[in-house]
């Protein structure tokens, strides 16, 4: 099993719901607290497991604006794990989630250097490395209903742009989405095999043929008819007698 998020860039509107709901869930959860520095001062900064960024693709007027959420991709070959000197970073065999054991972490930050995606965040007050846990403290919690046993960000997302499931199960929603909607991994060049995938923009276009535009049953044929003209107005009747 390899659990993962599949993020549909086709519908993500960049609302940041996933960002804040993630923070909200996790700060009081097993990964918390998630420090905020200068929360009311200059340059407020804090630990977040998920960020939404925006990219402008192309030049005016052919500009696409892409909202791009990014959290730990739970790589199948996670470069962040083997480099960890303490074993605090590990990948779970049972479901492929990459986690950090905060009690073992020495805060050397080496794993963050080893992650090409910038998915790890050092917590400045607890001084250990943190990252997306795929909400491991939700998805197996049997106190929660089935519906709730999904990552916080997935449940929050108003556009349903975040799918969650097992990408090793070809019948799962995520596998189908990857297969059918052209799901792709980030920076495939490093062979990290990110479990999280992204679905590209898809465009719907309309083509209208000429004969569709001006049809014979056009209402102008009805309304365009002018009323019968004044009977007394001049007509051929006045001058010709065949």
């Amino acid at each position: 099993m390899q659990l993962a998020l599949v993020i549909d860039l086709n519908v993500c509107v960049g609302c940041h719901a996933c960002v804040i709901n993630c923070k909200e869930w996790n700060t009081s959860g097993t990964a918390g607290p998630m420090t905020d520095l200068n929360p009311y001062g200059k340059d407020p900064t804090g630990t977040f497991f998920n960020r939404v960024q925006t990219f402008e693709v192309g030049t005016f007027p052919d500009t696409e604006v892409v909202h791009f959420p990014k959290s730990c991709l739970h790589c199948e070959e996670p470069p962040c794990v083997p480099v960890c000197p303490t074993g605090a970073s590990y990948k779970r065999v049972e479901d492929g989630i990459v986690l950090v054991n905060y009690d073992q972490c020495i805060g050397c930050k080496y794993c963050s250097w080893a992650c090409p995606y910038g998915a790890r965040e050092f917590d400045e007050t607890q001084r250990v490395m943190k990252k997306c846990t795929l909400c491991v403290d939700r998805i197996y919690d049997t106190h929660l209903t089935e519906e709730e046993r999904r990552p916080a960000c997935v449940r929050a997302c108003p556009t349903g742009a975040r799918l969650f499931g097992d990408i090793h199960d070809p019948a799962s929603e995520v596998s189908i989405a990857i297969r059918e909607s052209g799901g792709y991994p980030l920076m495939p060049e490093w062979g990290t095999q990110p479990a999280n995938h992204y679905l590209p923009r898809r465009k719907t276009r309309l083509r209208i043929r000429k004969d569709e535009l001006d049809r014979a049953d056009n209402p102008l044929k009805i309304d365009g008819q002018l009323p019968t003209p004044d009977r007394t107005a001049p007509s051929l009747d006045d001058i010709a007698s065949w």
Partner: peptide, 15 residues
């Protein structure tokens, strides 16, 4: 031509 418009945070981050 791709340009980043925002990185989702303004006061800086670990990254």
């Amino acid at each position: 031509h791709i340009a980043q418009a925002s990185q989702g945070l303004m006061g800086g981050s670990f990254n």
